[in-house]
Design a protein around this nucleic acid. Sequence first.
RNA 1: GGACCUGUGGUGCAGCUCGGAGUGCACGCCGCCCUGUCAAGGCGGAGGUCGCGGGUUCAAAUCCCGUCAGGUCCGCCA
Length: 580
Amino acid sequence: MPREYESTSLRDLLCGSISEAHVGQRLNVCGWVAKRREHGEHLAFLDIRDRSGVVQAVVEGSVDVKSEYVVRVTGTVTPRPEGTVNVKLSTGAVELSDCEVEVLSLAEVPPFQLDDRVEIDEQVRLRYRYLDIRRDEMQSNLRLRARVNTALRRAMDAQGFCEVETPLLWAPTPEGAREFVVPSRLNPGEFYVLPQSPQIAKQLLMVGGFDRYYQIARCLRDEDLRADRQFEFTQLDIEASFVSQDDVMGFVSEAVLDAAEVATGVRPGEIERMTWAHALDHYGTDKPDLRFAMTLQDLSSAFAATDVKAFSAPTVKALRVEGGASFSRSRLDELTEQAKGLGAKGLAWFRVTADGLDSPLARYLSGEETAAIAGVDGAANGDLILVVADEYELACHVLGAIRVTLGSPPVGEGPYRYVWVTEFPMFEGVDEDGHLQAAHHPFTMPHPEDLGLIETEPLKVRSQAYDLVLNGWELGSGSVRIHRADIQSRIFRALGISDDVAEVRFGFLLGAFRYGAPPHAGFAFGIDRLVAIFAGEDNIREVIAFPKTQSGADLMTGAPKSITERQLRDLRVRIDPKGK
RNA sequence: GGACCUGUGGUGCAGCUCGGAGUGCACGCCGCCCUGUCAAGGCGGAGGUCGCGGGUUCAAAUCCCGUCAGGUCCGCCA
């Protein structure tokens, strides 16, 4: 049945809503001519398309319309004659007969066909994005995204969160991701930046007493683009006061599970948890794809006293590839290249056969070593065992990447496997100045048990940071924030940020914290990625109306473009033609 | 900054390995025919600087070099 909002001054209901319930009614529909099938001058069929679907209009006599003309059709809803029902069409049991067709707008021949019969080059799609998004697939992706947004807002509202908007013109904070810069006309030589995220703003909202904040926030980062990364992307951004990590994970779970239910029709059960150390050890990554097993096996003890040079390393990790014994030599070489590209010295392979291990390295192995490899993960004849020996983290990362290459199903396949990854390390490695680097951000609260290690064994300090991962995609991350000045200065000191520098960069935040900062924690996750997975798309451009290309261009508008001399003069900005 | 893949009428492909006339297929478009089609059908037709530039060659869509655009990835994304 037509809903209230379908009816307008020009139309009575949407094309896709027409059904046998309307038989006998004379109705108006508006839409685009999707297809025209003419039978001489006596009979023509028009498929009229709007956002809801397609309905067939029958015109007695010829009709002067072409593909993509915008028309208003007045016709009588009639059951189709016997034998002409189209089961492939939701409206296929009926048609509009005795039609009058009013052309509302002419259309040139479109640059590509809008049916989904062939895949169109993305370059062409992006140049004519306004036509591309007329297609079913883009319509349903963007509408799915709208439903997800609605579900998220509803879930946050139901949990007592208050939506607050934060500025897009923000202050430069030379940390982390490269920022987009906006020159100030009123203050020549000075600049705003577009926020990488509302991180500091939302912490200030906590100081301001908004104890449950959320926002569907646009974030901007001037970093290289990827299938899952655009300059601008959208996060559900959350922050709450007087909460623990578990509280925040609960809020986020509620929102994500509600969105999942709306998007997929099934509400997942509770989201499982895994520590960062466990994820790295078993999956070789901090964003494990749990849709398939193929976990990394540790053979370090079996090779502790090995004579084989290739395996004398702190860590020896192995991966069982079911049925992989049939891999060609060139396939194995490709995998080896991949491993080397990721920093491994090599990749050892062993085919498991009835006669034992088949490998160039097999004859050098001791009995114990052979048994260890042949027994990896319940290996059977026909399997392939891949082995990397190296420093612990490198061995994990390399095999983890190969695990994904060999095992990962396409985006749209398999179950949805959500997982919280917790207890991230506080610091990771050192920068070129020898200072520790924050794994999450410098306001992250260390794990309470590890506070004593900050000065002594910083790399062992766990943080109260947590990621949400879905099918191998990092959806988002969050943390408990530091609200105590003493801990904050210890962290700054560990990161090599002096009091003076901290004051310059984050002075307003630290200042705010001096006026009564509640304990607080938060999270943010990428809506583009979540919707892409729900839509079964392997890149987020498919769920964004007007995305950029990998080189940052908008093929439709031509952005980025030069601006006029006048604009440059107003901004007191001069282009250096020699610069590159 | 780097690696790899792609670029051929409006669209999607084949042709490239092993150089020999812009050759082919499907869709779309234009014209004619057709009263129950729905990937309508039949007949006919138009439409191309083979991304761009250079080189090799008697001859380049094809081989080589460079370049541009799009994609995937590494670096980057606190």
